[in-house]
Design a protein around this nucleic acid. Structure first.
Lengths: 344, 344
DNA sequence: ATGAAAGCGCTAACAT
DNA sequence: ATGTTAGCGCTTTCAT
């Protein structure tokens, strides 16, 4: 007598175990485990009955047991040391996540996302070092984030952007050539006749910010120009606005600004418009990212496009390679390009 | 001879185990386990030496082993059945996540975020039913998301918004009174003299959308008015814009629109401005959410504020209560209120 | 190709 | 207050 296929999955108190599947299929645990592992070294008949038992019992292997025995979790972490506001406010992170997800889709790994500006010894770190994931992706790394070193010592890690303590042995990262990006933006400004050029940087405890500033300085030096003024921003709209206000106050004759992110450029633009300053006639503005913020509203930003989604994919690719025991390149560099629109 | 406290943590091949801690502290595994569990029923001396051993070995309990033995993971999932674009594009989700995180911070649970428009039987479902989390929070539930029922059967679940298959026994949820929200918005329009009122709805396979539409219809009926036109949107900017275009085409004499989300209202406004239609003079617009999108740029939206962050917190509160074996109310209703700004 | 047996690192009775 | 003894559900040698 066969059981009707429409019946409810049979289960005891909790979820079905491998033992129950084995019993129902008339084989041993080992055979079921082999089927789970890909069905190698299993006879066609056994394979068939095990598969059926699994379906009938609606069996899903217990992950804790599995990772305890196999010493791998099939999960990776994406760690973003920022608060939720910054994380959700900047489209950059959306692109990264989307890239990571895309690459992960064809793998057997799943993603655990950690948004934590957190202190060392916090729940995130404990969770990660507690063996919950096989590896980690870290973006938006600040110099002060020393707790990340603990993670780095515990498992394979791939950074998005160079980690702050310089690229040492053992550090894997996927970075955009931000020096080049800063150069491209600044060159455009110089070539279009601007001479009193200011810049709004990102947080200077991040390599991306520093690199973009370097590119800016290089091009200016080569053109025998002095930076009109360098103001610090924090990659937020309000930070950009505040920096722009300081520029207008300190150096009202500024005729161009290289802003190290689109979001900050939006803030700068808001101030400029409120003051009745014409863009690009009076002051030209070049952003950085080419995120949705660049074209969300008028004026559309002239900006430096960085391939963030690709960066997410690439980081994942490298981590997966390391997890597979391969030896991917430690440094991967992606290129930026200028996108000319309305503001410069 | 005491070991210098500055030394590197001692470890073998992998991370330290409870066994090593026990050996170093000169006690049994059980005692260490008790210390881990809160230090009850442990002598001061033992507690002290165990704590020291833990610090010296930089010991972190293996989570897989722990959850295998204790049958709990101390993790909960937040499931969002949307694609990354929608998830990051709508500030609503940022508020929810932020609320969940806030409530979780004071608990010992950690958050696993799942953004998956996913098919049934996908990795997310497998992960969840594989016993990786103790409970789940589900927001943005669509009628088609039947795979969520599997989750619901496997573990305690709390919905944000009513789940589509009506509020049955066993369904816990925290909802905003969206009917009331729709009423408030529409009443405002009626009271300010509008008579040819249209609406742009959310996806109609979601209860929130349906509820807001109900409120809209109720007030109109009470005022003995006919809806000028009802257009479907999808909670995105572009969807709102497209719907607005259809309204303008089909019913150009419309004098007000109740738009079921701020993001869609932004899209509608974009179309209106491009057409040279004055807001609110020619057409009044009321949004819904009072998310950052409402005040990001001019004109600032007249909208219905819903307490999304609070909703996230409340959902978490209910789930945590269920996990603690308590019996929280199945339905929690939050209230919406009108915020009058520039568009109506 | 398959089963038996050992063990992954921890918690949880149960003794004492 | 502390140690001993069983497992939790799975993978993985090792035989056969």
């Amino acid at each position: 007598m066969t059981l009707p296929s429409t019946q409810m999955p049979l289960r005891g108190a909790g979820a079905a175990t491998i033992e129950e599947v084995a019993a129902r299929a008339g084989v041993s645990r080992s055979t079921v485990s082999r089927v789970l592992g890909g069905g190698d070294r299993v006879s066609a008949a056994a394979l068939e009955s095990v598969k059926q038992a699994i379906a009938e019992l609606d069996y899903v292997p217990n992950r804790a047991a599995r990772s305890l025995a196999s010493r791998q979790t099939l999960a990776i972490a994406l760690v973003v040391p920022e608060d939720t506001t910054r994380f959700f406010g900047d489209p950059f992170f959306a692109s990264i996540v989307s890239g990571v997800n895309a690459r992960l889709a064809s793998s057997e790994y799943i993603l655990n996302l950690f948004i934590a500006s957190g202190d060392p010894g916090d729940k995130t770190t404990t969770y990660l070092t507690g063996g919950n994931v096989d590896g980690a992706l870290i973006v938006s790394h600040h110099a002060s984030n020393t707790f990340l070193d603990r993670i780095h010592r515990t498992m394979p890690v791939v950074f998005g952007g160079r980690p702050m303590p310089a690229a040492q042995d053992g550090y894997y990262f996927v970075d955009v050539d931000n020096v080049e990006g800063g150069r491209i933006a600044t060159s455009h400004l110089v070539e279009t006749g601007r001479r009193r050029i200011a810049t709004i940087t990102g947080p200077l405890d991040m390599t991306v910010s520093d690199d973009r500033l370097q590119g800016f300085r290089q091009v200016l030096a080569e053109a025998r120009l002095e930076p009109r003024i360098v103001e610090n921003g924090d990659f937020t709209i309000d930070g950009g606005a505040a920096a722009m206000e300081r520029i207008l106050e300190t150096a009202p004759d500024t005729d161009a600004v290289f802003v190290a992110s689109d979001l900050m450029a939006r803030g700068a633009l808001r101030v400029l418009q409120a003051r009745g300053v014409r863009v690009p006639e009076d002051i030209a503005v070049v952003g950085f990212d080419d995120s949705p913020a660049a074209t969300d509203m008028p004026p559309h930003l002239t900006t430096v496009r960085q391939p963030s989604r690709e960066q997410g994919e690439s980081m994942t690719e490298v981590l997966l390679a390391r997890l597979a025991g391969e030896d991917p390149p430690q440094a991967t560099i992606l290129h930026a390009e200028l996108v000319i629109r309305d503001t410069a």
